[in-house]
């Protein structure tokens, strides 16, 4: 009962945050709405027994990634108005029709029991100890590949940040004048 009340409260919060993310004209409001959604989703993780995933979600997503988003929003400019006029003629009513079809499909699919097995169990608790012992035994190769992916992404980000138009051949003096020669 308590879980149902919590689900309703945080489900509405997550939906409100998602609608704000999609509809807000100011990108800062979009980022804050996504932050609300991510916090609500972390509550669902805890109610499903995934405590470590919830902690990672709050620290990595709602902390680091959203800070990065806010930095870039401030850099790119928050005050330029976004053109909301739609140039496509028939796609918007078509999309509404498809949305109704999809919602009906979801509601119909929700009436079937797709998963058989022991229902109602909260499953195994996703503590740090349990997840770590699985992650470093069974999933150690994907884990190392993830580390490789993160290194490649970090190096790619640095390389993209250092790129200048017109001086692709010699970038030795990249750090000296970091923003003065912007057009």
């Amino acid at each position: 009962m308590v879980e149902l009340v919590l689900f309703i409260i945080f489900g509405l919060a997550a939906l409100f945050g998602a609608v704000t993310t999609v509809w807000a004209r100011n990108p800062v409001y979009s980022a804050l709405g996504l932050m609300l959604t991510l916090f609500s989703v972390a509550v669902f993780y805890v109610s499903n027994g995934a405590q470590f995933v919830a902690a990672v979600q709050v620290i990595v997503y709602a902390g680091a990634v959203m800070t990065l988003f806010l930095f870039v929003i401030m850099l790119v400019g928050v005050d330029r108005a976004e053109d909301r006029r739609e140039n496509l003629p028939v796609q918007r009513p078509l999309a509404l029709g498809l949305l109704v079809l999809f919602g009906a499909g979801v509601l119909v699919a929700g009436r079937f029991a797709w998963v058989t097995g022991a229902e109602g169990g909260r499953g195994a608790e996703g503590t740090v100890e349990a997840l770590g012992s699985e992650l470093f035994r069974r999933w150690v190769l994907p884990f190392e590949l993830t580390a490789l992916l993160l290194i490649i992404a970090a190096a790619g980000t640095v390389a993209l940040g250092l790129f200048r138009r017109g001086e692709a051949e010699g970038g030795d003096e990249g750090e000296a004048g970091e923003g003065e020669e912007a057009p």
Binding site: Y45, N48, G49, A50, F52, V53, V56, Q57, V60, Y61, A64, V65, L68, F69, V115, G117, A118, E119, G121, R122, G123, A124, G126, A130, L131, E134, L135, R138, W139, P142, T146, L149, L150, I152, A153, A154, G156, T157, L160
Partner: peptide, 29 residues
């Protein structure tokens, strides 16, 4: 789904962690 199946291998949780990691890399790039 990981909670529903009572998964003692924590596959759902670990895949969620991988998705979060890949999302962080994607956001950086």
């Amino acid at each position: 789904f990981g909670s529903l199946l009572g998964d003692t291998l924590h596959t759902g949780h670990i895949f969620a962690l991988f998705v979060i990691t890949v999302a962080a890399a994607e956001v950086g790039i």
